[in-house]
Amino acid sequence: MCSASEGQSRRSPISTFSPGALRRVLRTADGVLVEAVYEPCTAGFEGNSPAAGGTAIVVAHGFTGSVDRPAVRRAARVFAQRAAVVTFSFRGHGRSGGRSTVGDREVLDLAAAVEWARSLGHPGVATVGFSMGGSVALRHAALHRGRTEARTDAVASVSAPARWYYRGTAPMRRLHWVVTRPTGRFVGRYGFRTRIHDRDWDPVPLSPVESVPLIAPTPLLVVHGDRDPYFPLDHPRMLAAAGAAELWLEPGMGHAENAADEPLLARLADWLVDAAARPRPAAPDAPRTA
């Protein structure tokens, strides 16, 4: 879930945002203030206001990421060639308030970003998450699958874990040290600029693999690299087997947004836009809880 190879404090200059970009501070259901950026679709864009209609893609970054990270900016740039894009920083990341709960309460951050996209006039909203953001996207799709303003019309989960507390690889053991130890959280705050909550989950949130069966009929795509150093291939296969998910195993790909090249991002955007437009039966309302 950690994107350490991206660098510890790099930010993208404002010029990397597309014409007509809007910055906002969103308030989540539990009162946390979250920074977010809206960028209109750049295909045929005219003027400096969001164009109503069409699909918006909401991007959920990985642990230690933020709206200004170069890998998130690259993804937004590619996605914006096909749809409007909302990027945001999870709580405890970037300029957002609060502290990271590493995939639990972050569902509320994603819900606030989806609601903002719909408020700007987009009847179709798709979500894509990377690593920690991928697990959040799955749980969000399960918990907001009914006819609410926070629902997603299509979801893609990239490089996500299938189950909690996984320590089977060296990078994940290091990440657990950062999250669970006081010294690790100090490193997270001042080394990775990520403020991490010091309390354990109580209760333990719905896991990604438990979320998948609840997502239908919303279209679901699971994407994973065969060289991912954090989560081996049993994770995406477990997720895909748990429900009606399409699975892409990407040869040579590493982990999350840092490893997603532009051709893959373009394919992701095409899938999300097409999937969000598919007619499907309504799903029952789900409890609005993280």
Rank of each mutant, 00 (worst) to 15 (best):
residue 63 F to T: 08
residue 64 T to N: 08
residue 67 V to E: 00
residue 67 V to R: 04
residue 68 D to C: 08
residue 68 D to V: 03
residue 71 A to P: 00
residue 71 A to T: 05
residue 72 V to A: 03
residue 72 V to L: 09
residue 72 V to P: 01
residue 74 R to D: 02
residue 74 R to M: 05
residue 75 A to G: 10
residue 77 R to N: 03
residue 77 R to C: 01
residue 78 V to W: 02
residue 79 F to P: 02
residue 80 A to W: 00
residue 81 Q to R: 15
residue 81 Q to I: 02
residue 82 R to P: 00
residue 82 R to N: 06
residue 82 R to W: 08
residue 84 A to V: 08
residue 84 A to K: 00
residue 86 V to Q: 04
residue 86 V to E: 01
residue 87 T to I: 08
residue 90 F to G: 00
residue 90 F to Y: 13
residue 91 R to S: 10
residue 91 R to H: 09
residue 94 G to M: 04
residue 94 G to L: 01
residue 96 S to M: 11
residue 98 G to F: 06
residue 98 G to D: 04
residue 99 R to M: 13
residue 100 S to I: 02
residue 100 S to F: 06
residue 102 V to H: 03
residue 105 R to H: 13
residue 106 E to M: 11
residue 106 E to N: 10
residue 106 E to C: 11
residue 106 E to S: 09
residue 108 L to S: 05
residue 109 D to H: 08
residue 109 D to W: 10
residue 110 L to S: 06
residue 110 L to E: 04
residue 111 A to Q: 10
residue 112 A to W: 04
residue 113 A to M: 08
residue 114 V to W: 01
residue 114 V to H: 03
residue 114 V to Q: 01
residue 115 E to V: 11
residue 116 W to Y: 15
residue 116 W to K: 03
residue 117 A to R: 00
residue 119 S to N: 09
residue 119 S to L: 10
residue 120 L to G: 04
residue 121 G to M: 12
residue 122 H to K: 09
residue 123 P to E: 14
residue 124 G to Y: 10
residue 125 V to N: 02
residue 126 A to K: 07
residue 127 T to C: 15
residue 127 T to G: 04
residue 129 G to V: 06
residue 129 G to H: 02
residue 129 G to N: 08
residue 129 G to R: 02
residue 130 F to P: 05
residue 130 F to R: 06
residue 133 G to N: 12
residue 134 G to V: 00
residue 134 G to D: 01
residue 135 S to E: 07
residue 135 S to P: 06
residue 136 V to M: 10
residue 136 V to A: 06
residue 137 A to Y: 02
residue 137 A to R: 02
residue 138 L to S: 08
residue 140 H to C: 04
residue 140 H to A: 06
residue 141 A to P: 05
residue 141 A to H: 06
residue 144 H to G: 02
residue 144 H to F: 15
residue 145 R to S: 12
residue 146 G to M: 14
residue 148 T to I: 13
residue 148 T to E: 13
residue 150 A to D: 02
residue 151 R to Q: 10
residue 151 R to G: 07
residue 152 T to G: 13
residue 153 D to T: 11
residue 153 D to S: 12
residue 153 D to E: 15
residue 153 D to A: 11
residue 154 A to W: 02
residue 155 V to H: 06
residue 157 S to N: 12
residue 157 S to W: 04
residue 158 V to Q: 04
residue 159 S to Y: 07
residue 160 A to K: 02
residue 160 A to G: 09
residue 160 A to P: 03
residue 161 P to C: 07
residue 161 P to I: 03
residue 163 R to W: 09
residue 163 R to G: 05
residue 165 Y to D: 15
residue 168 G to H: 14
residue 169 T to F: 14
residue 169 T to P: 12
residue 170 A to H: 07
residue 172 M to N: 14
residue 172 M to D: 04
residue 173 R to P: 08
residue 175 L to T: 15
residue 176 H to Q: 11
residue 177 W to Y: 14
residue 177 W to Q: 10
residue 177 W to S: 05
residue 177 W to E: 09
residue 178 V to F: 14
residue 179 V to S: 07
residue 181 R to L: 13
residue 182 P to T: 12
residue 182 P to N: 13
residue 184 G to R: 03
residue 186 F to Q: 11
residue 189 R to E: 15
residue 189 R to K: 15
residue 190 Y to Q: 04
residue 190 Y to R: 13
residue 191 G to S: 11
residue 191 G to L: 14
residue 191 G to M: 14
residue 191 G to W: 12
